[in-house]
Nucleic acid binder design. Structure first.
Lengths: 343, 343
DNA sequence: TTGTAAGCGTTATCAA
DNA sequence: TTGATAACGCTTACAA
């Protein structure tokens, strides 16, 4: 089992100095053509690759971006990562992905680990628990140590940094408006508990849309779900014997589960009940009937977040104190679950 | 904007030597209790964290595992990552995830990048293009440089290393047998082109099951799909006017697409046509009807792969030349798409 | 044209 | 009990 070859070894073999080898490999004119060629041939033969760790230490930058997301098994976040990787690769950056699993502790650990040498900056969507605890010291600390942070999707208002978000309230309003425009009047919302920022904003958008249509807010039509992964029984109870003609769900899972529950209750979608979701993932697309949804453009978010971060990383220090918030447009994707055939 | 604090700075502030600080922070008995406390208090105050990069350089290991997968937007792979992370975190390893996007070049680039200092070993599922090209030099090279590699799912027989796979053929056989056992006779298979190892194996399992039931192989019932993401029209054409009573699909997307197409053709699932898929992802679970499927236990695969790798990483060199292949059990998850109600 | 030496942040060995 | 020094692999002034 060979070891990785270093400059030192090449230098010894060729009986020159380390710096000669280093310069030769960089095609420095300081070194004679002859030596250069000799060194390069040798390096190639032994498959020399500069050691990134040593370079990072020397340059005091790692050329890698740390991405921390609440859940890796989640289509939306993976599309964001796709966008980040695209930009990062173009600009010669590496991407390290860690998931917090929605745990505050794991988020802190991951961040500190990457912050202590592995990443130059962060792209982060905070864990559910972090939003609940309102403890952001790890983020503040990271920034105060000179590492820029870009927050996306699940952001924190109190933290001053670059941000990439969608207008959640507006998206929800668009969704609700669409339901209203096709004649729905009894519109239920399946949303999350309020401490999840995006859930709350979407709830607000829904309410705003109703108000604009002079429809009174009805507590009975609002279900705030805490445990996202076990939402079925809650949704079932909520929807049981409820006279609704539309459901707006703030994520795919709620939307699909609602469809399933309504199905079992003998309701037809979209004729009896129209459904509209949030996040354009594979579930919405492949479900029968396919689900109308608000697209969040995850990849775009990733692209913008990466650009913001790299700008900070490579920008003049002068610009450093300027923080931007990029708002990505959402749009309605019309599918079968809101196509009324009768009426 | 503060900079990260180093031993050197602490040493200067406290007017002691760097090595004293280093030892004090490690609670070395060499250092007086007094100094130890003073140093530790100061380090805490300034939030000192040892620089991982420097440690990596010194120890010549990074304590991180590189994971390279064909696609990050893919539920199965993310579950595997979940398993890897679990073990890695327990054992004090960091996980870096890169996606090859099914591109050979990107796989090579990612691997070389991580290999040159960022990771101690690899967990890898090869890109489609790599399987097609049969060029494995990057993997061989990485191993010859002393970095262990564990291949999973899409493995390469020719490469000698640790592997974690499922018995794809057996899983497919189980699936097909199940269809046969509920009375299906005209079973179509939606599979991938042969150069994708898992696709081929699953096709073989399907054929083997048919043979055991003395059902002749029928070319007409086999569809080999090249472009996985645009399978709909192909599946539609294939299924059009075809008299089948069951479909076995080698992945979720094919299964769901088949269901959709059959639906549009007025066929009822499972009564007219039963469907069984492969990979227990969210699509199968939430589809209506829910899809019977072969579970690949992605998380388990990740767990085993990580264990194999860490064993190699931490094992005695004596064990180094021993390679293991772990076969993860698959099992059939019964759902609605194969529950015949009439007959 | 080539080589020496310092430095990136740490730890370990040895000397004081 | 503390400190100087070398080393990990690399780059880069500066000296030869």
């Amino acid at each position: 089992m060979k070891q990785k070859v270093t400059l030192k070894q090449i230098a010894k073999e060729l009986d020159v100095s380390i710096s000669t080898v280093s310069k030769a490999l960089k095609d420095s004119v300081e070194i004679s053509l002859d030596t250069r060629q000799k060194v390069k041939a040798f390096a190639k033969l032994y498959n020399y690759k500069p050691n990134n760790i040593a370079l990072s230490l020397k340059n005091r930058k790692t050329k890698t971006i740390g991405v921390i997301i609440p859940e890796i098994v989640h289509h939306f976040f993976t599309t964001v990562i796709g966008g980040v990787e695209k930009v990062a690769n173009e600009k010669g950056y590496n991407v390290i992905i860690c998931s917090s699993n929605n745990s505050f502790d794991k988020e802190v650990i991951n961040m500190e680990m990457l912050a202590s040498g592995s990443a130059d900056g962060f792209i982060l969507s905070v864990a559910k628990e972090t939003q609940q605890k309102k403890d952001y010291h790890h983020i503040e600390e990271t920034m105060s140590q000179g590492m820029p942070v870009v927050l996306f999707d699940r952001i924190i208002d109190e933290v001053v940094c670059d941000k990439v978000i969608i207008d959640d309230a507006k998206g929800a309003q668009t969704a609700t408006n669409h339901l209203l425009s096709i004649g729905c009047k009894k519109i239920a919302i399946l949303t999350t508990v309020d401490y999840i920022s995006v859930g709350k904003l979407r709830t607000n958008g829904y309410l705003r849309a109703l108000r604009a249509y002079d429809i009174p807010e009805n507590e009975e039509f609002i279900l705030k779900i805490e445990d996202i992964d076990n939402c079925e029984s809650e949704i079932e109870d909520f929807l049981k014997n409820k006279d609704v003609d539309a459901v707006f769900a703030v994520n795919e899972l709620f939307a699909v589960t609602a469809a399933k529950v309504l199905n079992e209750q003998g309701k037809k979608i979209p004729d009896d009940v129209a459904i509209i979701g949030f996040t354009d993932g594979i579930l919405s697309k492949h479900f029968i009937p396919s689900l109308t949804t608000i697209s969040q453009h995850g990849e775009d978010m990733g692209v913008r977040a990466a650009k913001l971060l790299i700008d900070k990383l490579e920008g003049d220090d002068a610009l450093t104190e300027e923080y931007r918030t990029v708002i990505i447009d959402t749009n309605l994707i019309h599918r079968q679950s809101t196509k009324k055939t009768k009426e």
